[in-house]
Design a protein around this nucleic acid. Structure first.
Lengths: 412, 412
DNA sequence: CAGCTTGCTGCAATCGTTTTCCCAAAACAG
DNA sequence: CTGTTTTGGGAAAACGATTGCAGCAAGCTG
């Protein structure tokens, strides 16, 4: 191989690698020389087709000269290193010589090379994928949760696969199947309900899981315990303090564990406040707008219409609000309403909704953290792990004194 | 290989495959014999570890006896066929003998085998993945769109990768990068704004794209043209018919193409109705609740407060509604409000929002269809393709006669 | 200066599929 | 019974990366 005269500038003690690097560095200053030298070095000339095109349109070609097959091999050839070195460079393995690394990065950037995740995952056995199973994407609570989860995941180099089950077991099983096919490394089951049999598929394959409220007691499982009672007690106390005694509750679907927990927390809190919870004042909703409205209908049919309604989630509360509006009852003058979740839109309902906050961000963070620990250092954990998520009452304007009492105060 | 005595039941003219099949069929009746025969056939006995476990716990073992490495190879060995046959069976290639197929399916089901999508995608070059780029997942419009898109995609064997850009170019470029890494076969850019430079990465790699409203004029690009004017004209006519003349418009972000289109449609419609659009009555929002409220603030500061406000989307309208509530103005008695999108929650605002419907389902269907055609039969299309999406006014209760006029009619 | 250590780099095996090509057996024709 | 076509399954080469291992060069030691 003829050595260009320019290499005489190198220090006398240069290593062979240094010589090569310098040779390369110089060569990059001129595309023509670059490719000529590469030709001499690699003894391959099929890729010289590209440089010709590049020379004819010297200005704005960076976008066009991508060889049809851009893989780690091509990069290796262009940077004049082995594919192993390219791989190591991309993965920032510390043993690669910075000079080589620079050379590789230059080529990678020049050709906008993007490694193929599938190939990577296949050989490394790490898909860097987490599944996120939610019940319905159209409930604003979940998009906010997804947002948080995705942000954190991306920040840590993970991708997420979201699937909405719509409470349909068949759909759920499809979702799980798809996650299995994509080889997710963990799944956050944020459906607020435990569909044990369906999740067997995951458990069998020892996929780390994180649940809300309840989960099977085995290794690789984390549970996010939401402190429903704290927020709900605050809400009941708030109502009781205002003078409410006839307080109704619109629950979520009976099959949903979290809905039952919320209801239980409500009953307990009522007793704590010295009010006997009346089963007739508990209407079953389904965590949707329509369900909330329908449940309110039932409550309105009671001989003594409740002066306050606590709802299992905000969508339900908004449905209740709407039903009250339709009925001509004013909130909070005639009926007080409290929601649960504190979705963003609760701030702008008419009137703004008093609700119990449960931080989507906290939830997402805890879920991701749990999964990540299980995946990246499973040896540090044994058996099931639990995390606590707080809830807090946010007082807005949908709560006030009960109708008929303290009228003088109402007008302010 | 010793042939079990039971094969004497076979018809005299049986093919070799039949003999094998029968042998296998008989063998499956008894797990012990099954594995013994398999052992004789395959001459490998390492996988016999599993059957032993199975024998000791005969009842509920189906869940536990999955060998640690479940791949197509294992299935092939257990079904006593080649991996090629397993692959063909899974992909329902018609040339496989139904008997073999049955045998393979039995094993697959027995062990809950799930093929590895990554390996599949790698070798076939088909990731069966579409990207869905949206602007903000917290705007309920998008979840509804995602839902539709995902449903259709899954139905056709595709998966989707959703990314929310939050209008941030940096985020957007990350999103695109991630999609590239996962080798998406197409991307639906539902951001309602064209960020040309960022999408270069995709265009360069000839990834089929589908845009809303506007898109570069090149092959592989489809555009969903939304007929803003139809719905918006209906809205303006509706207001004009009610007697409104002082009609304001709260636009979306100035940088967003779709927002400009909506504004243009508004101006045009106003002129058509013989009302001169007044620039002072056009406030810029940003398609969020807060933006809507802020814009309404500006409109309230006008010497002559508009009697009707048309909004660029429903979130804006809800923000406007809230601001009006705060100000003490009644809707529609003092001010009429119209939104755009017809998100689900618009039905239950106080009062229910009159809005312009744009079908998420139509949008999703068209977007997916466009992408699919590009991917699966690119030869049938040349250059850019366009699809029309209709819009229609949905009259609810946030619109009424302008204040001060026809009072006698208002009370009904 | 021989011999050992250390630091990098390249070779090659591997991941779990799909798919092409080829060949054996069955079916059919004469 | 022989020759030809049809049928269907198996062997092996991809796909695009990662990674253990081997080996070469330079630095260090005595």
């Amino acid at each position: 191989m003829p050595i260009p005269s320019s290499n005489r500038l190198l220090p006398i003690h240069s290593t062979r690698a240094d010589v090569q690097s310098s040779l390369y560095d110089i060569s990059t200053q001129c595309t023509v020389i670059n490719y000529t030298i590469l030709k001499l070095i690699s003894d391959e000339n099929d890729f010289l087709v590209t440089p010709v095109a590049e020379r004819t349109t010297p200005k704005k070609t960076a976008a066009d000269d991508i060889p049809d097959r851009m893989d780690i091999r091509t990069i290796a050839r262009l940077a004049n290193v082995s594919i192993a070195t390219v791989s190591r460079t991309i993965n920032r393995v510390s043993t690669v010589n910075p000079k080589m690394a620079k050379r590789v990065w230059d080529v990678i950037e020049k050709f906008d090379f993007v490694p193929n995740t599938q190939a990577r995952a296949l050989v490394s056995g790490r898909s860097k994928l987490f599944g996120l199973l939610i019940s319905e994407i159209t409930n604003p609570f979940f998009p906010e949760l997804i947002q948080g989860f995705e942000d954190i995941a991306v920040e840590h180099g993970y991708e997420i696969l979201v699937s909405s089950t719509n409470h349909d077991p068949k759909r759920m099983s499809h979702c799980i199947r798809r996650m299995l096919e994509r080889k997710v490394e963990g799944v956050a089951v944020m459906t607020f309900g435990l569909e044990e049999p369906l999740l067997d598929q995951l458990a069998k394959r020892k996929v780390p899981l994180v649940f809300i409220d309840v989960g099977p007691d085995r290794a690789g499982v984390s549970v996010l315990k939401i402190d429903y009672h704290h927020g709900i007690r605050q809400a009941v106390q708030h109502l009781a303090a205002l003078g409410h005694r006839n307080i109704a509750f619109v629950s979520g679907p009976a099959g949903l564990h979290s809905a039952q927990s919320r209801l239980a927390a409500f009953s307990k809190s009522m007793k704590e406040c010295g009010i006997a919870p009346d089963p007739a004042r508990i209407a079953e909703g389904d965590h949707t707008l329509e369900g909330g409205a329908a449940a309110m209908d039932k409550l309105l049919a009671l001989k003594e219409v409740p002066t306050a309604v606590l709802c299992s989630n905000d969508m339900t509360a908004i449905g209740v609000l709407h039903k009250l509006y339709r009925t001509g009852l004013r909130v909070p003058d005639d009926v007080s309403v409290i929601g649960f979740d504190d979705i963003h839109i609760a701030e702008v309902t008419t009137p703004p909704l008093t609700t119990i906050q449960m931080s989507r961000y906290e939830l997402a963070k805890a879920a991701f953290g749990a999964l990540r620990t299980q995946v990246e250092s499973p040896e540090t954990v044994h058996g099931k792990r639990e995390f606590n998520i707080p809830t807090d009452l946010i007082v807005r304007e949908s709560t006030g004194f009960p109708r008929g009492t303290m009228k003088h105060l109402r007008k302010k």
